[in-house]
Structure formats: structure tokens, C-alpha cells
Design a protein around this nucleic acid. Structure first.
Lengths: 348, 348
DNA sequence: TTGAAAGCGTTACCAG
DNA sequence: CTGGTAACGCTTTCAA
């Protein structure tokens, strides 16, 4: 029923081996033969059988990109950049590009492991893990074990926005400097005169949550300012909205709120507006991630800019083997303060 | 080096066939044998070889989800829902779930075709095409041809948010009622007294752009109100921002602006604020898509709600064969007007 | 530069 | 309920 390589070979009057060589383009073939084969391919509308090809070659063109939340532009931007970088990379087997596919783990370690197994089944060429991870020890161990098994099987592993696995040299790691970014952000607010600062943290037990919170606390400690109320919640609008009520209940005199994430910051803004509070007149709001899709329609916010596009591109190149990893496997990606407007100073 | 099914069979003292049956769980096996096999699998840390499995079975567990822009939550939300629905569907071959992977076409028909070919290579179990498409005839024909070839090869094809292909009964189509939604939106503005309404349309030649614009014009025509200025641009913030300047230049007395998309609407709001115009006091802004991540931090907007999550879920079920398609293959998904606040009336 | 043939690891059919 | 064994379609030495 379906056209096979042998059919193409017959029509082109060559051996299957020759067709394979033409298709993979990694072997010298006479130009005339080559043309004859390509014409036969076109005539027969032949499509290579991926599974057969992968089986025989013991590798595939699949590159898995695991993200915590595909509905969050934070991941969308990185994934998009990675996918472009991968597709544009060196042409792989099967006469073409690599197939970069995005897998949505929803932040669940179980689903993450499931996807990794699935990709391992497929003999994926590479795997990119994007975003922070849960910090539960057994989970980390399970993931680390799976990753090193993947690496052993020849799958390239790239960590993007996630701390390197302890004692695992297999994976290239691109690490955002959340801590410094968060510290700068809080330093900025302190510089504007704020002394009562609330903090909406991300989900507990996540690396990003911890690192950002640590930076925040560093800044407070250095300035000798006591820590204000802190509330944890998922990286979602609703979370910022609910947290705001909680923070104001705990300290009605807050003059600033730091959100662990832009999406959360938007929720904070909405909640403040509902209460008749002016942003940033009454309460200053600061965010993190600098998502282009979220920010300039709301009052001027100060945020920390993470170069998502660049990070994703770099991850893609590493995954596609189109770039050399750093000697020690780690690369730190700077987080840069972006101040929008200048009305965030404390009144009086 | 790598553990194969035969190794497992040897250790469990059964035949390879039996191991396969245990793993696929679609054949009766004695409980004791079954346990022995599973223990051997665990002991050896065996992972099924996907390509070999797909080759022998002539199908795979891969489901491709093609989206126009993975960085846009519009697609992220639908893709996420679809992925969940697919994973939760009937357990397929290989002892588990289907692998739903999202592919970012960037709205380019070439990349779309490339991905479809790649998925065809992989003998994908299903393909979901999300979002509107370009209307260039040759492109439509090329895509249609590819899709029917996929369908012939046993791949289920689902269209989600894209009009059905002419004369192609292979694909199940979930169609958003953009036209009615857009009509209602403009009717609402007209009801508030607006008579000079600008329109920021999506990219030219896209089905969504055309349908939304048609609905807008229907409402104007029915009310005998002349069409205001219209500007085309991509579905991005920057586009709304730039378009606003253009619209106001063409008609400084606009009292309302309809954006073809929420992301664009945010850009419009930002541009208006920069000009010192109050939203919706001076100019009323209306959006489309009702993205939860975009809307309630800005002034009350009126939008059209598209049930993205529901649509994505439905698409996933259809792709996973966990639901029956409608008899004629089409399903229309309603677009519902959402009015936020009530201050959008024309002044005086 | 090309051809022949030996696998690659599973599945599924046919016996038992 | 279990075992034996042809496919499945391609890649890749090894020769020519």
C-alpha cells in the first residue's frame, strides 16, 4: 500500500542502498543517479518511514522540549526560540531538520518523568528541560537518574533555567541569575524609600521560588529592613490577586509589593485597583520575567528582565549540536533590572 | 549495550512474544508470568524501543499539535488542554499514554507542511491543526493534499479553530464562530452610542482576520453606520500600539477601537494612555479571545470569549479517539460577548 | 560510485 | 495461555 524505499529504488533502477544515501545526503552519489532517484521520490510521493529509519540508525531526529506550563508566555518565548534554533541547525538524518516538539509537564515531576521515558523510547536526539524544578530529593534523584541514562544512550541533555543536577556532567546547564535579579529589584524599591514591602512568592519547593526569595531577603538584610509579609502561590494571575488581599490584611501599610512573576504582578495590580488603590501612587508593584505580552498596558512597573529569547536560542543550539557547551557545562544568564517610569517613590 | 526485549524474556524465562504481550497489556497473560516479566523489566531497567515498536506495529503514539505561535497564550491554552485530554485518553501501545507534542509553525505554511511531513514520517497517530490559516489557494491545496494523505495512512486529523478543508471529509473540524462574535462586539459598541469606530485587524489573508472583520462590517451595515478606519497587522502588542497612532491620524474623533485580539488590545490601551487618553472614558477599547492572562489588570474592556480550554479538550479527545466526531465532521464553537464594567458609553 | 545482504528490536500470526 | 518466527523498512558494512 504505502510506498517504500524499495519501490523508489526499483523505479530509479538503483539499489535501495543508493536511495538511502541520496536521501541522507551524507555519502557521495553521482549527480545523474541522484537526480534519477529524486525524480522517483517525487513521482512516487515517497515519504521516509521514520520508525524504520530510526530503528536501523539507532537515533532519531526528535528533540524534546519540556516546559512547566505551555500556556505561560515565559515558556512559550523560550520554546519558540529553541524550536527555531533547532530547525535552523545542521540538517540531520532523514534529509531534513530535526523535529523539535514541546511537551507540557504542568510542573509535575511525574509527567516530566513520563515524557522523559517517552523520549527515551523514541531515542530522541536531545532533550531540553526548561524552567525551575521541584526540590524534593527523591524527585531530583529520579530525574537525575533518568537524565544520565538518556545521556548514556547518546541523547544530548540541556537544562535551561534550571540548576544543574548535582554531580552530573552530562548536561549543559543555562542558569538564570534569579538571585541577583531579585536582589537588585528589592534594592531598587529600598532606594525609592520603601520600608514595608510585601512579597508574593511562587510555589513552595521550586528552585526559582527559592532563589528569587533569597535575593529579596539578601537586599532587605543588607539594608537592615525587616522582612514584610510573604505569601506563596502558583505563577498565575489569580494567585497575585488573592495574595494581595492576604498581604494587605497582614500589613495595611504596605507601600510596595514584589511579585515573583509578571503574570502574578498583573493580578496584584488588578486587586489593588479593585480596592481603589493607585499603582504606583499608593502601592508600588514590581515584577519578574519582563514578559513583553504583559507589561506596558498596566501602570509602570519595575521588573527584572530575563533574556528568554536568547536563552531559548542558546539552548536550541546546544541541543542541535550547533554550538559547543561551556567547558564546565554551566552558563550563567544575567538578570537585568528594568525600570519603567519613575513614580514608584514613597509619598511624602 | 542497551537492554532489549529479548534480554527481558531471557531473564523472565519466557518468550519475547510474551514480554511484548505483557507490556502492551492487550492480550491475556497469566498473572504469575506477568509479574515475573514486570520484575525482569524493573531489574533490567528496560525501556521499550519506540522506533522498533512503531515499525512493527505500523503506528506510533505520537500526536502532533500544530500551532501558529507558541508564545501566544491563545494557543498555549488550547494546546495545554489538548495535551491533557490526549494523555488522559485510552492507554495506547507501548504500555502507556500517547505523546502529544506541540509544533510551532510561526504561521508559516512552509513550516506547517514541513511539520506535517515530519509527523507523516513518524506515522503519527493523530494531528491537530490549531488556529486560522493563510488563504492563499496553492497553500490551501498543498495542505489539503498532505492532510488527506495523512488521513489515508490512518492518521486522525483534527482542525481546531480553522475552517474545514473544501471537500475533505477526513478531518473533524471545530470551528469558532468568529463572525458572530465580532458582530455582537460591534453591536454592543453601537448600542453604547459609538459611531466612529476604528478597527485593528489581524494579518491579511488569514481566515480569522477575515471572519472577524466580516462580522464587524455586518454590524455596521445593519446599523447604517459607515465603516471607520481599519489597519492590518500581526496578532501582537506592537501591532496594536502602532495601529492606534495610525487610526487616530486617520480619524482623531474616534470614540472606540476594536482590536482583533486581546494582545493587540493591550497595545492599543498602552498607546492611548501614552497620549493621555482615558480608557474607556475617551476611547472605548474592545478585544477578542478573552485571554485570562491579559485582561483584568487593564481598564474594563469588552471582549468576545472563545472557550479555548473546552475547544482544546474536545480536539484532544477527537485526536485520541476518545470521542466520536459529529456526523458531518463539523462542530461550531460559539463565541460569547463578555462585558466588563459599564463605562464604555459615549460621553455626553 | 554502486550493489548485496546482514541486521536493528518489536509485533503479530500461527501452532501447540 | 505461551512459544516460534516471519515480517516491518531502512541503514550500513563489505565487496565489487
Amino acid at each position: 500500500m504505502t510506498v517504500t524505499l524499495a519501490d523508489v529504488a526499483a523505479r530509479a533502477r538503483v539499489s535501495p542502498a543508493t536511495v538511502s544515501r541520496v536521501l541522507n545526503g551524507n555519502y557521495p552519489v553521482a549527480e545523474s543517479t541522484r537526480e534519477r532517484v529524486l525524480r522517483a521520490v517525487a513521482d512516487l510521493d515517497y515519504v521516509l518511514n521514520g520508525p524504520a529509519s530510526s530503528l536501523a540508525a539507532a537515533t532519531s531526529d526528535l528533540v524534546g522540549v519540556l516546559v512547566n506550563d505551555i500556556a505561560d508566555p515565559f515558556f512559550g518565548i523560550m520554546a519558540s526560540a529553541a524550536q527555531t534554533a533547532i530547525g535552523a541547525g545542521a540538517s540531520g538524518r532523514g534529509g531534513g531538520e530535526k523535529l523539535a516538539v514541546v511537551c507540557n509537564t504542568g510542573g509535575s515531576p511525574e509527567r516530566e518523568l513520563t515524557y522523559l521515558t517517552l523520549l527515551q523510547r523514541q531515542r530522541a536526539a536531545a532533550v531540553i528541560l526548561m524552567g525551575g524544578s521541584l526540590e524534593a530529593p527523591e524527585r531530583l534523584a529520579a530525574t537525575a537518574a533518568k537524565l544520565s541514562r538518556l545521556a548514556d544512550a547518546g541523547t544530548r541533555v540541556v537544562l535551561c533555567g534550571r540548576p544543574p543536577v548535582e554531580g552530573d556532567a552530562h548536561a549543559a546547564a543555562l542558569v538564570f541569575d534569579h538571585r541577583t535579579g531579585a536582589r537588585r529589584l528589592t534594592e531598587h524599591l529600598l532606594g525609592l524609600g520603601h520600608r514595608r514591602i510585601g512579597y508574593v512568592a511562587g510555589p513552595a519547593d521550586r528552585t526559582t521560588t527559592r532563589h528569587r526569595l533569597e535575593g529579596h531577603r539578601e537586599a532587605l538584610a543588607a539594608a537592615g529592613v525587616p522582612e514584610g509579609p510573604t505569601v506563596h502561590g502558583p505563577y498565575e494571575r489569580a494567585s497575585g490577586h488573592a495574595a494581595t488581599a492576604e498581604l494587605l490584611a497582614r500589613d495595611p501599610d504596605l507601600t510596595a509589593i514584589v511579585a515573583s512573576n509578571d503574570t502574578v504582578a498583573l493580578g496584584v495590580c488588578a486587586a489593588l485597583r479593585e480596592r481603589g488603590l493607585d499603582v504606583p501612587g499608593d502601592v508600588s508593584v514590581a515584577g519578574f520575567d519582563d514578559l513583553p505580552c504583559a507589561l506596558d498596558a498596566v501602570p509602570p512597573l519595575t521588573t527584572v528582565h530575563l533574556p528568554l529569547h536568547e536563552a531559548g536560542t542558546r539552548a536550541g543550539h546546544l541541543a542541535a549540536d550547533a554550538a559547543e557547551p561551556a567547558p564546565d557545562g554551566h552558563e550563567t544568564i544575567p538578570a537585568e533590572l528594568v525600570v519603567r517610569g519613575s513614580t514608584g517613590a514613597v509619598r511624602g
